[in-house]
């Protein structure tokens, strides 16, 4: 090796600190340069993000008006009011279902199950997170739309979305309760509290910020989903009037319009929908970060 590099080998027992052998120069130089070059890889991550956001914004903003955002006119090609309001309604319904399913499940896993049973449940939650969204969309389609006969409607989409979001809330609720310091749990139970009293009176206030975080996180992930929505709902130009009416969704709007000719109002609509989704997702992520930094400090305080 040393000869291949064309230099003398470092000698052992060498007393000089000013080693100038080729091998040493190579080792030190390699370390120095890799330390300078590797950080450049961040360009790979940062450039696409900036480019994507800039591209979407620059195509969405020039034609964006307040009317587009609020108009629910089914005959206008450039009205975003229906998808916006529909998305808000779908998200509300899906989040409510997912919170009920995920929150209680997660708390029960953290507080009442034996370690072995909890491990099985946690593994299945992780499996669910790893399930491709299109598979979940198929489940929703075959179960809700076909088997239950709901058709491509609000309720079918909302339930599919809820199932998609549930494991995220579940995991965070579980995590929030398992990361409460042991001594607090023991102090509560030791002073005569029943387990459910501990959960409600002691655990819940401590875990609340992180659970809220989990809900926001699940919403950020849910609002960006496309496949389960497109498979279980049908594009509607009007607002849903009930659980069994057709519905629209922002990501579905992007999906339906992305291949329209450039310059058309439809493609502008796709970009505007994309911008809104990105803003919501990034906004929720920022909120999550802020809460989680504060929560971490609070949790550390509990350990002292």
């Amino acid at each position: 090796m040393a000869n291949a590099l064309g230099g003398a080998k470092e000698t052992l027992g060498e007393e000089l600190l000013y080693d100038r052998s080729a091998r040493t120069r190579w080792r030190l130089g390699f370390d120095k340069w890799i330390g300078r070059l590797l950080p450049l890889l961040f360009i790979v991550a940062i450039l696409p993000i900036l480019d994507l956001v800039y591209y979407v914004a620059s195509n969405a903003l020039p034609t964006l008006t307040w009317t587009i955002l609020t108009s629910t006119n089914p005959y206008a090609p450039d009205a975003l009011g229906v998808p916006i309001i529909s998305t808000a309604e779908m998200m509300t319904a899906a989040t409510l279902v997912a919170v009920v399913l995920g929150l209680f499940g997660g708390v029960a896993t953290a507080e009442f199950l034996s370690d072995r049973t909890a491990a099985i449940v946690r593994t299945s939650a992780n499996m669910l997170v790893g399930t491709p969204s299109v598979v979940l969309g198929y489940m929703g389609y075959f179960l809700f739309c076909v088997r239950f006969g709901w058709g491509l409607t609000f309720i079918a989409g909302a339930f599919t979305l809820a199932f998609f979001m549930t494991p995220y809330i579940f995991r965070i609720a579980d995590l929030a309760f398992t990361s409460i310091p042991r001594h607090i749990r023991e102090a509560a139970l030791g002073s005569g509290a029943r387990p459910y009293q501990y959960v409600v009176r002691v655990g819940a206030p401590i875990a609340f910020p992180q659970i809220l975080n989990g809900v926001f996180l699940a919403m950020a992930i849910g609002v960006g989903e496309t496949a389960p929505i497109v498979l279980t709902t049908t594009a509607s130009k009007v607002l849903p009037t009930g659980a069994f009416s057709p519905v629209s969704f922002l990501t579905a709007t992007i999906w339906e319009n992305f291949s329209q000719p450039s310059g058309s109002p439809e493609i502008a609509l796709a970009f505007q929908a994309a911008l809104l989704v990105v803003i919501v997702v990034v906004g929720l992520n920022v909120i999550v970060r802020i809460i989680s930094a504060r929560y971490q400090r609070r949790l550390e305080g509990l350990f002292q």
């Binding site: 961040f42 994507l52 960006g224 496309t226 992007i254 992305f258 291949s259 994309a274």
Partner: peptide
């Protein structure tokens, strides 16, 4: 920034990828 990459919805990646 790397974490943010995970947050961008795939349909938005799609429209950016398809058109630009």
């Amino acid at each position: 920034f790397v974490d943010l990459l995970a947050g961008i919805p795939s349909v938005v990646y799609g429209i950016w990828g398809y058109l630009l």
